[in-house]
Design a binder for these strands. Structure first.
Length: 485
RNA sequence: GAGCCGUUAGCUCAGCAGGCAGAGCACCGGCCUUUUAAGCCGGGAGUCGCAGGUUCGAAUCCUGCACGGCUCACCA
């Protein structure tokens, strides 16, 4: 008989004995992790004197049957707690019911807290009941679930047997909470803007296309919320932020998932210099929250968020690292040729000056930026939504934050001039850049006046990767996109 | 999209100079009232990713496909 059939039989037996296969509730007053937290440090004699009764519940991870006594570990997903079943406590009849339980089953337990002679915190069961039967066996108990594909497709199994997975997503939640707190303390309002866009914009990326039937209208899943958030600043919301999903119809890699989470925020009257200081503060708070300090490790290398971080100019840095003189980097033909020269045989070489510059930057600079580093003052051709640099018309007031070789944040003094913005959009369209459309509605909004504004986008998934020491973005996304099986 | 690697029991993995498909965990039966990778005895469990080919004979060699991983490409 297959395991599933055996377990169905077990369930039938339990039903005959009066157990509900799918009960409606259980008074689990004491969470496993709370019991562990509250009594882990307690003395044995102390517990014996206090006779503390608990009512708890969880999934059975392991069972050790020894005739008239049985030990099991249950978990609430965070902590493990040992349960002790004994015939002379439960009675012969009740004790015998447990033979129909298996690992993986959900169980409700009431009993007394004590410590075994090896000192492990344990609940001496006075009563137990079935909360759900697992008809399929759990993955192996000490190797856990290793198969990466199964871990992502059946994340619930990964969560049951791999404690580290639960930790990552607990940390992700804490990071998000911390970010919200940080922004709320500074007077920000959280908003939600459309995820379905009729005009593409806010980033350079290929979109997903969908269709609304009643309106008979094609829509894009947003590639960025940027243009909507700035409309809100025009509308007088001087400090707004949004945390939400963006969708980009591009390749998948250890650093890219087609849907990913971004924080974007806009602060009126500020510029990008202010944002760099603010970004240092934000990441220091996250580091304190997760690491309890400003120093940690990523993939075996020391990472230090102690401010101030290096601020390196894009063109100067690229020139330094590549050995190409700065004047040459402004020579479109030279850069295109150079990029083509260095480009691997397969694949599509950069088609525009902007892409070629970007390629050179990735090749010579990006991966070296391990410690938190701001790369500042990007060329205008790379930054269609950023304001021209106050001292150098070929540049913009823009920075990107790199940590562990990853681009984690992107920010600028926002372009506020509607005519200039229109010209930049048109220029993009002329260059046939991805995600480029002339958003006339946005130009109109700008025409009502956008005050000086600083805006920033922070990649949440990558930030979580850094603070959970995860080498792959899929480790920090509960259900990463996989091919249909 | 390209190159390389992988896919064997529910899980973790061995087996691949072509010759009866294996182990541990899990599961079932027996013994066992402080175990914790419990232990001891016995047992059941497989479309060897899928399809074709070579061969007396294929998990093993060859081809194609599917899914996954890594690297590259794409990607502010």
């Amino acid at each position: 008989m297959e395991e599933k059939e055996i377990r169905k039989e077990r369930l039938k037996e339990l039903e005959k004995l009066g157990y509900s296969p799918h009960p409606y509730f259980y008074p689990a007053e004491d969470a496993v992790s709370d019991i562990v937290k509250n009594f882990r440090g307690a003395k044995e004699e102390e517990l014996e004197k206090l006779k503390i009764k608990v009512s708890t519940a969880g999934r059975i991870l392991t069972i050790r049957r020894m005739g008239k006594a049985t030990f099991l570990h249950i978990t609430d997903g965070k902590e493990k707690l040992q349960i002790f079943l004994r015939e002379n406590t439960l009675g012969k009849e009740k004790y015998s019911h447990f033979k129909h339980f298996n690992t993986g089953d959900w169980i409700g337990v009431k009993g007394l807290i004590f410590k075994t002679k090896t000192g492990e915190l344990t609940v001496l069961a006075e009563d137990f009941t079935l909360l759900a039967k697992s008809l399929l066996p759990l993955p192996e108990k000490w190797h856990g679930l290793q198969d990466v594909e199964v871990r992502f497709r059946k994340r619930y199994l990964d969560l049951i047997v791999n404690r580290k997975t639960r930790d990552i997503f607990e940390k992700r939640a804490r990071i998000l909470r911390r970010i919200r707190k940080f922004l709320e303390e500074r007077g920000f309002v959280e908003v939600e803007t459309p995820m379905m866009h009729s005009v593409l914009g806010g980033a350079a990326a290929k979109p997903f296309v969908t269709h609304h039937n009643a309106l008979d209208m094609d829509l894009y899943l947003r590639i960025a919320p940027e243009l909507y958030l700035k409309r809100l600043v025009v509308g007088g919301m001087e400090r707004v932020f949004e945390i939400g999903r963006n969708f980009r119809n591009e390749g998948i890699s250890p650093f890219h998932n087609p849907e990913f989470t971004m924080l974007e925020f806009y602060w009126a009257y500020k510029d990008y210099n202010f944002l760099m200081d603010l970004t240092e503060e934000l990441f220091c708070e996250i580091a304190m929250e997760v690491w309890g300090g400003l120093k940690g490790k990523y993939q075996g290398r020391d990472l230090d968020f102690t401010p101030p971080w290096k601020r390196l100019k894009f063109m100067d840095t690229l020139s330094d690292r590549s050995g190409i003189p700065v004047e040459k980097l402004w020579d479109e033909d030279f850069v295109m040729k150079k990029a083509l020269e260095l480009f691997p045989e397969e694949g599509t070489p950069p088609s525009t000056y902007g892409k070629a510059l970007d390629f050179l930057f990735d090749k010579f600079v990006k991966e070296e930026l391990f410690q938190p580093t701001f790369i500042i003052d990007f060329p205008k051709v790379l930054s269609p939504l950023a304001k021209e640099h106050r001292n150098e018309p070929r540049l913009t007031e823009r920075f990107e934050l790199f940590v562990a070789g990853m681009e984690v944040a992107n920010a600028f003094s926002e372009l506020t001039d509607p005519d200039e913005q229109k010209a930049r959009f048109e220029d993009q369209v002329r260059r046939k850049e991805e995600g480029a459309e002339v958003d006339l509605d946005y130009i109109e909004a700008l025409s009502y006046g956008l005050p000086p504004t600083a805006g920033e986008g922070v990649g949440i998934d990558r930030t979580v990767m850094i603070f959970t020491d995860s080498p792959n973005i899929r480790e920090v996304i509960l259900f990463p996109l996989l091919r249909k099986k």
